[in-house]
Design a protein around this nucleic acid. Structure first.
Lengths: 199, 199, 199, 199
DNA sequence: TATGAATGAGCTTTCATTCAT
DNA sequence: GATGAATGAAAGCTCATTCAT
């Protein structure tokens, strides 16, 4: 079962994103997703093991291309500073471009149980490693201090970006998300404190 | 209804924290909470409007004292830098001291629907305003640059701390949470970048 | 228990009529009746065995005075025809004068279970016997044909009046109920058919 | 939903009549009806919107055929007198032939709330209009006096028949119901009073 | 007498999943 | 592969009644 990659596989994934974004996770019945996808309820189970598997697959599918897109944009010849900027900007841009997906990742996906969230974290790891690699390069090249705690720094970066996106979603996408990339980047790199030797 | 502040009110709140932390929100039936609290199922409804109201009340109750505790620790004569440190350390310490509550706030409370999350944010506002006031003081006293975006800075601070706590919870409280206060504080203030005029 | 005839006994009965008429039988909780009566929930059980007993008592109380009132109006010197008219008119008048009670007897009291309805019928018997006595007198005095089936005749009379009242209640007491007494009386006595020797 | 007219639809309706007649409306749980019908609880909800809808559908289903049967029996060439007799006799016969249904219509269906009873009245209208048409014909042909109050006359006829049936049901179907048709017919047409010019 | 906090049994409805066609 | 009718377990909430004060 779960013979992936049919045309219907994509159809169901996209239907799930739309239905969950519009109705909320707990009001997104399998039958509703099936109807939106234009397939029978039973058909869902030819492509997915169970309802939870739709969520996982959805996240894997979308997050996979997300990480790939960012990786492609980060050119080896860029400075660490530039790389971090591209990562932040792409992160914001990707979600700003897909309101449905933003709602799903920032709000609805977090309503799942611990088991599911553990699997989601598994998917996230690829992205977090990308951040780690930038941080490691910065440490090696002494752009960051050598004794930087990479795990903590990554949590700060990810937590900060994530919080900004969640606020944007909670505020109904009212403000322009991508324009936060620059100040976010600056504050993460230089901190909140005014530096004597100005930037 | 919701005749708050009985002895049973506290009893039920505490039982709910324990049951939800151990079983997850969606596997915490009202009857399970009632049993843990040592009251009848129906008694729950003398103190809470419905199941969701237990969650809200639980958060208001615990978060209220949380904000108060931190406020009390932040002495007017402290520097902005010190105030921020106290806030971060207290935030971490409060949750490190109550593993059950940490699980509930970082994981289970986020499984609620939009309506509930909106109310939770309402409760959070008190805490966010506390952060804002520190940031404003820093901007006024030129400890931070005057044109700092307070909203964004607050999101970075809160997002970073929150992410650190969530990681700690997801890792089963394996590492010492409070010891992250200092590096977290340093990085938020000074940023990731090595400063020429070393710290 | 059920130590009748306290001041509170009446208070509770009257509250029950009002609450049931306004909220419907199935939405008339004991606590609601208690509140309307201005007593504690538990007090109800000092005067009534259980909720059903309130209903029975209510009906006995009101129906008792109902039968008595009509009996008093029916003077021994009246003709059978006059007696029947008084009975019909009083029946209609009594209910027309107490909209709450009309709703309760015509609609809400019938929502009770078989056991309760059997007891209600017991109370009704006094009234039905009154009809029977008029019919018997009519048969004896040859005002009615001697072989009249009294049981059937009584059912027709009661059924007809009852249906008229129920229609009036269902139509929100829109038309004047008492003015139906005369045609009702005429049709019951003379039938629907036009008589050759006109009346 | 409410995808009527399946084989199961009939199955559930019939089970409901039996279960409600035997246990009373308020002791007829959906699960009990499902079990009697030999279907799963959930299946009920594929054919009926909710429990109340079973009652409505049950009445519409049975009452629909009831009105139709009587209409078919009433031949255009019959006299008004004959038509009324057929109506009364069929009314009694239909219920005498189905004790379960008689219990449900005379007792249990009346335990419903105002909203439900209003819908039941809607279904009843077809039957009441049939009575009205007979009365109107009688008035036109001067069989009845021209100034007869049709609404009132209809209430008398329906109320009388209904009361007779209810008494029969309350007395556990002890006596023969259909044999009441003739005297009922006679008394409704000629009234209770002995007519000088005998019939 | 009177109170009212506490009890806990009881029931409708939803919805993920299955499986005969 | 595709369907969708059928399943049945599961749980939040109400409310008549009790009883310690």
């Amino acid at each position: 079962m779960a013979k992936k990659r049919g045309k219907k596989f994509e159809l169901i994934i996209d239907a799930a994103v739309k239905v969950i974004a519009e109705n909320g996770y707990h009001n997104s019945q399998v039958s509703k997703i099936a109807k939106e996808a234009g397939v029978a309820d039973g058909t869902i189970y030819l492509y997915f093991k169970n309802k939870e598997d739709i969520l996982i697959s959805l996240f894997e599918e979308k997050m996979g291309s997300f990480v790939q897109k960012i990786s492609e944009q980060i050119n080896g010849s860029m400075s660490v500073e530039e790389k971090l900027f591209v990562l932040i900007e792409m992160h914001l841009k990707n979600l700003a471009d897909d309101h449905y997906m933003a709602i799903v990742t920032q709000l609805e996906l977090r309503q799942s149980n611990l088991a599911l969230r553990t699997r989601i974290n598994e998917v996230l790891k690829g992205y977090l490693r990308l951040i780690d690699s930038i941080l490691a390069e910065g440490a090696e090249t002494s752009y960051f201090s050598e004794d930087i705690d990479i795990r903590l720094a990554r949590q700060i970066i990810f937590g900060a970006i994530d919080e900004v996106v969640t606020n944007w979603v909670m505020k109904d996408h009212k403000f322009d998300l991508v324009s936060s990339a620059a100040p976010l980047h600056r504050m993460l790199l230089n901190g909140l404190k005014k530096t004597s030797a100005a930037e």
